[in-house]
Nucleic acid binder design. Structure first.
Lengths: 151, 151
DNA sequence: TGAATTTAGTCTCACATGAGAGTATCTTAC
DNA sequence: GTAAGATACTCTCATGTGAGACTAAATTCA
């Protein structure tokens, strides 16, 4: 894919543009699944999913893992605590940064969403064979690594 | 890539999540290039890039092409007109929808950004060979088609 | 033709976001 | 050990966004 640096820019081939478009559509379509049914915002869902997968974390760690602003995380955590979907435990290593984890209810909620999420993605990638999907994921992670190098 | 619909969700493999993260990073890192130097917001840049590539379009068409809200486009167009970067021409077919196009200055601005954009992307994909990049783009467009089917 | 409906674009309002200040806690350096 | 700096988090404030009302124009249908 030789690009012509001189004068033209093909937006379809330009990743910051086309990837953003596709990601937005995906996120929007998928989020309908949990927003209505489970009354979760995007940041709230992302926090739940990360705590479910990785266990006990601090707010700061969640910020870094899911590329969210500290204010956004702070608000989402506050509201998840109010709904008893997560639990905050004092961190013996650092009193500022309490350890967050899913409550029983939070876990139950997550368990309800997971199969919906997996079904949704199965539909999305149904046009691809497994080799192609693996390739895609692999390239995606190379791109991600490249982006993180420069930060 | 067989997914387990029962209980687990691997966020790294979950596209609405990981693609959003990567797209956000990309857009953010790339936008630094034009935001400071050329004082353009993301929607403004997207409009300029689309008018440059596809020529005269209405605001509605720009909304559809770049997945932007009509309010967002309306505001961006207003400000680009004020800066004389684009021109609005009355549409003989529809007086409500004026035809927007780049002005000479707008074109000049675009011509300055294009090589930066191409360089930027060249750096981003420097770890990939051309076959891999083509594959990736190809899969991406399949995913995009799939998303647009359900809309 | 004219009434009803649809569409393009603007404007207002409610809301989410991110920057930055502020506070408490932890770490570093002397 | 203590002062200076860094860090985790909350809160406030300014800003951008999208939903929906509104207006003008176009389209549909009788």
């Amino acid at each position: 894919m030789k690009t012509d640096n001189k004068t033209t820019l093909d937006l379809k081939q330009f990743l910051p543009y086309s990837l953003t478009n596709i990601a937005m559509q995906m996120s929007e379509q998928f989020s309908e699944l949990y927003q209505q049914q489970f009354d979760l915002t995007v940041p709230q869902w992302r926090i739940i999913a990360n705590l479910a997968q990785y266990g006990e974390r601090t707010a700061k760690e969640l910020c870094d893992m899911a590329q969210m602003d500290k204010s956004t995380v702070s608000r989402a955590v506050k509201s998840l605590l109010a709904r008893n979907l997560i639990i905050a435990k004092e961190n013996p290593k650092d009193k500022r940064a309490s350890l967050l984890s899913l409550s029983v209810e939070g876990n139950r909620l997550h368990e309800q969403i997971v199969p919906l999420a997996n079904e949704w993605q199965a539909g999305l990638v149904s046009d691809l064979d497994s080799r192609e999907l693996n390739q895609f994921m692999n390239t995606l992670s190379k791109l991600s690594n490249h982006l993180n190098k420069n930060v």
